[in-house]
Computed example of a mutant assay.
Amino acid sequence: MAVGTPHARLRPGVLAYHGYRLSMARPRPRLELPDGVATLLLSFAGNPVVVTSPTGAFEQREYTSMIAGLRTGPRLGTHDGRLFGMDITMAPWLAHRLMRVRMDELADVGLDPAEVAGRWVERLRDRLAEAPGWAARFAVLDEELTARLTEDAAPASVPDRRVVWAFQTLAHSGGRVRIGRLADRLGWTDRQLQKRFRDGIGLPPKGVARVARLQHAMRLLEEGLRGAAVAEECGFFDQAHFNREFRAMTGLAPGKFLEGRRSAEAATRSGGQVDRVQGEVTSLLL
């Protein structure tokens, strides 16, 4: 496993680079939880990842490479134990500009990135695969992403700064800011705000707020707060409402989530990678 920090000119939109070369004796399932980032996954060896929905939201799909946006439900990824590739985590508004696609087309499951960005993705994957090591690959990413983001792009793919502000405000508040208040601050109707979020973020504002609130709740659970206290702190009606929402978004009860995170901590100590984004709860290794 290797982790790289994007060049300062790419931040804060591009969050991190992750490289991996795995050879395990058995399949390794990973439960991906709703988070506030988009992910571009590029495979160098062509080993597939099978993606399913624990809650039955979509049918099983198989990918080698994938670009995935925001989602409000979990997905389970399983591979045969052998992977060689990289992923790039980024803010959804940056992925909108990079991939030049409406972000609601990438919500929940994702697409093959070659179908979205064509030859640019194929060239990027080839350059990364041929580079002599992780440091060289991180340098290639800095170069290629900078070039892509400085090219002239269609106006529709350039993120609106007001949308970026509204998204960041919702995320930093743990989903507690009222959507109507955001629209008023921006001088938009609720319909205008929702359309701009679908295009540039992928989820409507209420969906972003749900993910932010879930992330806040999961961090509080890991800090040792009990369910009733978490429900009150995060603005749920009561603990029963919190439990229902938690299960709907993760496929797990809060107690099962904590058991899985303890196992994930052990994997981290033994050299595995669990969370792909600093400060967010993104995964469980099963």
Rank of each mutant, 00 (worst) to 15 (best):
T146H: 12
R244D: 15
D87C: 14
M99D: 00
M24T: 12
P92I: 05
M218K: 03
L170Q: 08
G224L: 00
S173Q: 07
L182I: 14
L41I: 10
G36F: 08
C234G: 05
T64I: 02
G85Q: 04
L193N: 04
R148G: 02
P155Y: 05
V3T: 09
W120S: 10
V37C: 12
A217P: 02
M103Q: 04
G56P: 01
S23P: 10
T250D: 14
Y20D: 05
F44V: 03
D108A: 15
L31Q: 04
G46I: 01
P204K: 06
T78K: 00
D142F: 00
A267F: 15
L111K: 11
P132W: 06
H241M: 07
W120L: 10
L22D: 02
G202M: 09
V140Q: 10
L225N: 07
R269K: 10
R213L: 13
P92A: 09
E223H: 11
A266I: 14
T78A: 07
A248D: 13
R9L: 13
I179D: 13
R148E: 09
A153I: 06
A212N: 07
V177D: 09
R178Q: 11
V14C: 04
F84Q: 11
G56F: 02
D190P: 13
F138K: 03
A136Y: 06
R178K: 10
V208K: 01
L128C: 00
N243C: 13
A95V: 00
F84S: 15
G4Q: 03
